[in-house]
Design a protein around this nucleic acid. Structure first.
Length: 334
DNA sequence: TTAGATAGCGCG
DNA sequence: AAAGCGCGCTATCTAA
């Protein structure tokens, strides 16, 4: 079917000046109708909005957020990010965000047992730079911007079962180049390749995937005679244990944090406000962030004992501020 | 007038 | 023919 989606219009950008204007209009109209016009109508007397989090929201075990959806508040573009500035901490409190770093890739590393990928995380390297160094067979210090960008695309693509076609679309360049890059990646991370094949085979045989904790997702279509149907099922099967384990981990963390708050009677000091898949947002009493952040991080980082997963740690980053638009990163104290 | 489907796009 | 996982919301169109 014909399409006017952004990725198609961008290819035609040089053909007519209106294309850029259409895209700009779309961006602004999206922000206006979805956020600027809507959020104020959902605010209570204290100007706070209250989302609903659905436990069974996603097939993978993730939660979903509705009325309003606070898991898709803009951040990627500058104009979009401005929307976040309206989410401000109550007087006397700070807003604190704590997010897991590359959790899904870390999960892929220990689920597959891939020695090279595990080594990268255990040495605390920048994963995209380190993967680029491996795939392009150069020293990490010789990895340029373009090499790192390509490694980042495939690192994320792996989690979704991306094929050569999608890789080409994302990288730019020819199909042949993408094929070479794809092959080299999996020749480098052999055990990851074996793992992905094993997930496909096992899911086809059993009809379901399992997270690290053993939670199942049943998947239809793995044995379909229609290649298109089968491929969709296979990609879902590859992603489910990874995204599902992430969902399990952060839910466990939320439960343990809630238990800790209750046990220590910190309800007035530490308020867990929101979960955004790999991130938790808190309101913490002014001046107390430095005291409570290490405890929260400690809980989040030890949901899975690193000793059980080849030493791969679930590291976190914390940031603090008065509004959600511009939080200041907290330097880790050891 | 309402309900459902589709296209497009915001997030992880 | 299509080839990247998981969501929710708005605008638009069609059918009931």
């Amino acid at each position: 079917a014909p399409s006017t989606k952004e990725s198609e219009l961008l290819k035609l950008k040089d053909l007519h000046p209106i294309i850029e204007l259409v895209l700009e209009h779309r961006e602004l109209q999206k922000l206006l109708s979805t956020y600027i016009d809507t959020l104020p109508t959902l605010a209570d007397e204290q100007d706070r909005v209250h989302t609903s989090l659905i436990q069974y929201g996603a097939a993978t075990g993730r939660m979903a957020s509705t009325h309003p959806n606070l898991q898709n508040i803009p951040i990627k573009s500058e104009k979009g990010r401005a929307i976040r500035k309206v989410f401000i901490a109550e007087k006397g409190y700070d807003l604190v965000a704590i997010d897991y770093s590359q959790m899904e890739l870390r999960i892929a590393a220990f689920l597959s047992g891939d020695k090279k990928l595990i080594e990268i995380f255990n040495q605390g390297q920048d994963v995209h730079t380190a993967v680029a160094a491996q795939v392009f067979r150069v020293d990490p210090k010789d990895v340029d911007k373009e090499m790192r960008r390509k490694a980042k695309v495939i690192n994320f693509g792996i989690l979704y079962g991306m094929g050569v076609t999608a890789l080409k679309d994302n990288l730019g360049g020819t199909r042949e180049e993408a094929q070479v890059f794809y092959n080299t990646y999996f020749e480098t991370f052999t055990e990851l390749a074996v793992y992905l094949d094993r997930v496909k085979a096992e899911t086809a045989r059993k009809g379901y995937t399992e997270t690290y904790f053993g939670r199942r997702r049943y998947i239809e279509g793995m044995n379909s005679s229609l290649p298109f149907v089968r491929s969709i099922a296979e990609r879902a099967a590859i992603n489910a244990p990874i995204q599902g384990t992430e969902a399990d981990v952060i839910k466990w963390a939320m439960v343990k944090i809630a238990d800790w708050v209750k046990t220590e009677q910190l309800e007035d000091e530490v308020r867990m406000l929101l979960q955004v898949h790999d991130e938790l947002l808190f309101e913490i009493k002014e001046g107390k962030a430095d005291e409570y952040i290490p405890k929260i991080r400690e809980i989040m980082e030890n949901i899975i004992d690193p000793k059980e997963v080849y030493g791969v740690k679930m590291t976190t980053e914390a940031s603090v501020g008065k509004h959600w638009g511009n939080l200041e990163k907290v330097i880790k104290k050891i």
